[in-house]
Amino acid sequence: MSQTPNQLEVSLKKLQKASQEIIKTKGYNTESEKINILIELIKEQGQHENSHPTNR
C-alpha cells in the first residue's frame, strides 16, 4: 500500500494524457468528460484531510 500515491500519480498522468489526446483528435466529448471525472476523483484523494467521521 506504500506505493498507492505513486500508482494514483502514474494513473493521473496517463489519464491526463488520454484526455488531452481525445480533445485534440475528437474534441471534448463524453469519453473525455468521464476521464476528467476520474482525474478529479484522484486529485481529491489528497485533499480530504483528517476526515474522521464525528461519530462512532
Binding site: 500508482q7 484522484i42 484523494q45
Partner: peptide, 10 residues
C-alpha cells in the same frame, strides 16, 4: 471506483 488503480500490481 479507484480500487482497481490502487490494487493494480503497478
Amino acid at each position: 471506483i479507484l480500487e482497481p488503480i490502487i490494487m493494480s500490481p503497478f
